[in-house]
Amino acid sequence: MQLELRHLEAVQRIAEAGSLGRAAARLGVSQPALSAQLRRIERVTGGELFVRGRGGVEPTPLGEYVLSVARRVLGEMDALTAGARAAAPHPTLRLGCILLVLVDRLFGHLETELPGHEIDISTERSAVTLTRMLGAGKYDAILYGEGADHDTPLPDGVAARTLIPKEPAFVRLSAAHPLAGQEQIELADLAGETWTTLTDDDDGCPEAVLEACRRAGFAPKLRYRIDDRKMRWEMIAAGRAVSVCQPTSPHAEGTVLRPLAGDPLTGRIRLAWNRAAVTERRAGRLYRAAARAYLDSIPNNTSYQAWWESRPELHPVLD
Rank of each mutant, 00 (worst) to 15 (best):
L93N: 01
A82T: 08
R71F: 05
L38M: 07
E42A: 03
S68R: 14
D78H: 12
S68H: 05
I98F: 02
C97M: 08
P59K: 11
E76P: 00
R39G: 01
E42W: 01
G83R: 09
D78M: 09
G63S: 07
A88P: 04
Y65A: 15
A70I: 09
V44A: 11
G63T: 04
V57C: 11
R40K: 14
R71Y: 06
V66A: 06
F50P: 09
Q37L: 14
V69M: 07
Q37E: 12
H90V: 10
G75P: 07
L95Y: 06
R85H: 06
A36K: 15
G46K: 04
E48F: 00
A86I: 04
L95K: 02
V44N: 05
R39D: 01
G75Q: 08
L49T: 03
I98S: 10
T60V: 03
S68Q: 04
R40E: 08
G83A: 06
R40T: 07
V44G: 05
A87W: 10
L93W: 10
L80W: 13
L49P: 00
G63D: 06
V51M: 03
T92Y: 02
E58P: 04
E58C: 02
A84F: 12
R72Y: 02
L93I: 09
Y65V: 14
G55I: 00
